[in-house]
Computed example of a mutant assay.
Amino acid sequence: MGTLRVLIAVGLLVLVGLHLAPPQNAGSENTTHNAGATPAAAPETVAAIPTKATVRVSANQLFNAYDENEVATDEKLAGKLIVISGKVQSVDKNVWGSIYVGLRTPN
């Protein structure tokens, strides 16, 4: 059960990261400058991303915390941005077609 929760948490983080990441082609536009040409209008500023409390944890620490007490770990992490580090075990798709990353844990 703990592994499933870790995989779900990692999957959610991947989805949030994909949603918040800048477009891949940002800053790579090929522009030419002609004498006398009017410069393009400045891009609109992007609204600041609201800051959340961030928890940095290894995959093993997260696994152990959920293995020890799922309810307490859920309460501790609720509403926080979780940065998980660890060795990638797999990259797969779930039944809904969403990609998730599985991190190596003691189980």
Rank of each mutant, 00 (worst) to 15 (best):
M1S: 15
G2C: 12
L4I: 13
L4Y: 10
L4A: 14
L4S: 12
L4N: 09
R5C: 05
R5F: 01
R5G: 00
V6G: 00
V6N: 00
V6F: 01
L7D: 02
I8M: 03
A9Q: 13
A9Y: 00
A9F: 09
V10T: 10
V10H: 08
G11S: 04
G11E: 01
L12V: 05
L13T: 00
L13I: 11
L13A: 14
V14M: 08
L15E: 13
V16R: 09
G17N: 14
L18E: 09
H19P: 08
L20C: 13
L20W: 12
A21M: 04
P22C: 02
P23R: 13
Q24N: 11
N25S: 13
N25L: 14
S28F: 12
E29P: 00
T31N: 11
T31P: 03
N34K: 13
G36D: 07
G36R: 08
G36W: 03
A37D: 05
T38F: 13
P39Y: 07
P39K: 12
A40Q: 11
A41C: 10
A41G: 08
A41K: 03
A42V: 14
P43Y: 01
P43D: 07
E44G: 15
T45G: 05
T45K: 09
V46F: 01
A47F: 07
A47L: 09
A47W: 01
I49G: 06
I49C: 05
T51M: 12
T51S: 12
T51L: 13
K52E: 04
A53W: 03
A53Q: 15
T54S: 15
T54L: 15
V55Q: 04
R56W: 12
R56C: 10
V57P: 01
V57Q: 06
S58T: 08
S58V: 07
A59R: 02
L62T: 02
F63K: 00
F63A: 04
N64T: 09
N64F: 06
Y66W: 12
Y66R: 02
Y66K: 03
E68R: 14
E68K: 13
E68N: 14
N69L: 06
E70Q: 09
E70S: 03
A72L: 08
A72N: 15
A72I: 10
T73N: 01
T73F: 07
D74V: 08
E75H: 11
L77H: 12
L77S: 00
A78K: 09
G79M: 02
K80S: 05
K80H: 04
L81Y: 11
I82N: 04
I82M: 01
V83I: 15
V83K: 12
V83Q: 15
I84V: 07
S85D: 10
S85V: 04
G86Q: 03
V88Q: 03
Q89V: 01
S90A: 15
V91N: 07
V91G: 02
V91T: 09
K93S: 13
N94G: 00
V95N: 12
W96H: 14
W96M: 13
G97T: 06
V101G: 00
G102W: 00
L103Q: 05
R104N: 07
R104Q: 12
R104Y: 01
N107K: 08
